[in-house]
Write a protein that binds this DNA or RNA. Structure first.
Lengths: 145, 145
DNA sequence: TAACAATATATCGTGTACGACATAATCCGT
DNA sequence: ACGGATTATGTCGTACACGATATATTGTTA
């Protein structure tokens, strides 16, 4: 068989697998908060800056509205956000945190450290982490449209 | 807000995004072959070693049967594989390539190089790629059950 | 200013992911 | 040899992803 088609030579397969396993690792931490991972990153974006348009959120999270809208609908149903139509421009939808959505930040604050411990095992040198992040950022940069 | 909750400080969000963008980059290359990315990695595994049990494939790809079975059913419907029940052990299902499934390898052989060019942009030093792969492998190792 | 292009968001259909549960075949101790 | 535990796979329900399309507003131009 072609050497380049072997699974062990595939960077992308590792990326795909690592991403899935990380999302699985989030599950037990997010479930008590009633969140999925995509819902969690929507909240991360909103905790940084409340009252964002669907399009702004989409740019920040690199998700299109066909993915984002259903997530936002569930989050609204669960009382974490509200969506307000047409303030200046009637086409836009503004996404805002409810009191519940705001309060969840406090309960989420230890999740990042916990997850880092899980995937890192033994703490790694910062330089190595920085190299990893740099590679991911460069990949994302090369792939985004 | 908590510094550790900022999106820019999240390794996992980058991983999730990079993985999604990579899968998107595969799409135009796989679509002419009538494949999705998960179907493609099933073929990678079968091109390496034909006639594998569902469980073996699952271990190799780190996917459980509840994900794998529907994928295999579609691939069987599309004539790429056949599933044979109960050879020695009546509980097992053996997955084998059809002639079409075998022939697809030829048409797929340039995909890895093409994708590497896409996400890498300027070719990177091998050492850097090796470090990246090492990090992903260590992550996968720490996260797998 | 009426028609038409452009924009922002939503809907729809297909294909994953994955926890929970179901089913069927084998194993194992008595 | 038989009944319960174990194992291999499949089914079901929910929630993403995402291409394609639809809908509703706003801009724009003749």
């Amino acid at each position: 068989m072609y050497e380049q088609l072997k699974l062990d030579n595939q960077v992308c397969f590792r990326l795909y697998t690592a991403s899935r396993l990380v999302t699985q690792a989030y599950r037990p931490l997010l479930e008590p908060l009633g969140l999925t991972y995509p819902q969690y990153i929507v909240l991360l974006a909103l905790w940084e800056k409340d009252n964002q348009l669907v399009g702004e959120l989409g740019q920040r999270l690199m998700l299109d509205t066909n993915t984002l809208t259903p997530i936002l609908q569930r989050m609204e149903r669960n009382g974490l956000i509200v969506r307000t139509r047409g303030i200046a421009d009637g086409r836009q939808t503004l996404v805002s945190l409810t009191r519940d959505g705001v309060h969840l930040e406090e309960r989420a604050k230890d999740i990042p450290a916990c997850l880092t411990r899980t995937w890192q095992g033994e703490p790694m040198p910062n330089e190595q982490i920085a190299g990893f992040i740099g590679m991911l950022d460069s990949m994302i940069n090369n792939l985004k449209k």
